[in-house]
């Protein structure tokens, strides 16, 4: 594993393992995620990328067979430690965007207002309006939906729905945004818009993205981690991984000589 030291660590995993029943899906993974950076997770299907991502905001807690061991540290605090962070609060700090856009069957406005309301962050009315607007603006969706905020979120196109989900995630002012293959259901234009959004969001948020597109990892991330069989084989600056990976497995995977 060739790792370059990460400047400003926002979140890190140490010896992170996950069992589903008897099956060991994640084998003691170490990874540092830097503040204000995009970290891409790549690797073949079933290698544990989603499992890893779900550990970061304790989404695995919702899977009955899943057992997590090891540590996830957010700003120096152990997410799984005794008296650790409350999972609901943690998920406000560590938001998630999924592969398939999954807006609630509610209005566009209510979709974005959902998190702030859940956490009682803002007063109904003008205050909440401002948050909804600024979240939609940050998600690059405001101009497209400002005149139809009462329409259902599900009435939007796929790409718009995904940006709505991103607006929903950022409405609670998270510090970290996790994205699990956020563009795999989108066409190239919608994908480009989401990638541009990731670029902009990375100024204010720490982003961890799982992607099956090598080119997407190359385009949007500053660091790339290559997962294989539940382990990280190599992690490094994205530029280095895609021009001169240290590990032959990484090279085999990204060049398509892996089978």
């Amino acid at each position: 594993m060739s790792d370059t030291p990460v400047a400003d660590i926002k979140m890190s995993a140490r010896g992170l393992s996950v069992h589903y029943g008897d099956k060991l899906a994640l084998k003691g993974v170490d990874l540092d995620m830097a503040a204000g950076e995009v970290t891409a997770l790549i690797g073949p299907s079933g290698c544990g990328k989603s499992t890893f991502l779900r550990c970061l905001n304790r989404m695995n807690d919702t899977i009955p067979t899943a057992r997590v061991s090891g540590r996830v540290i957010l700003d120096g605090e152990d997410v799984y430690g005794p008296g650790g962070i409350d999972p609901v609060l943690l998920r406000a700090r560590v938001g998630m965007v999924f592969q398939r856009p999954n807006p609630f069957p509610k209005s566009i406005y209510d979709n974005v207002a959902f998190g702030p309301r859940l956490h009682g962050l803002y007063a109904e009315g003008e205050e909440l309006d401002t948050v909804v607007r600024s979240s939609l603006e940050k998600a690059g969706l405001w101009n497209e939906v400002k005149d139809r905020l009462i329409e259902k979120g599900t009435s939007l196109s796929g790409g718009q729905q995904q940006r709505l989900c991103i607006a929903r995630a950022i409405a609670v002012s998270p510090e970290i945004i996790l994205m699990d293959e956020p563009c795999s259901a989108l066409d190239p234009i919608a994908t480009a818009k989401v990638e541009e959004l990731i670029d902009e969001l990375s100024q204010s948020f720490t982003i961890v993205i799982v992607t099956h597109s090598m080119q997407q990892a190359a385009r949007v991330s500053q660091r790339t981690a290559f997962f294989h069989l539940g382990d990280i084989v190599e992690v490094g600056a994205t530029e280095q991984i895609f021009t001169n990976p240290a590990n032959p497995l990484t090279q085999g995977y990204i060049t398509g000589r892996f089978g």
Binding site: P44, G252, G256, R257, F258, G259
Partner: peptide, 13 residues
């Protein structure tokens, strides 16, 4: 799974 000399997509080679 392992790595080979050849690309999965043969026309690339």
């Amino acid at each position: 799974m392992g790595i080979g000399e050849q690309h999965i997509v043969k026309s690339f080679d």
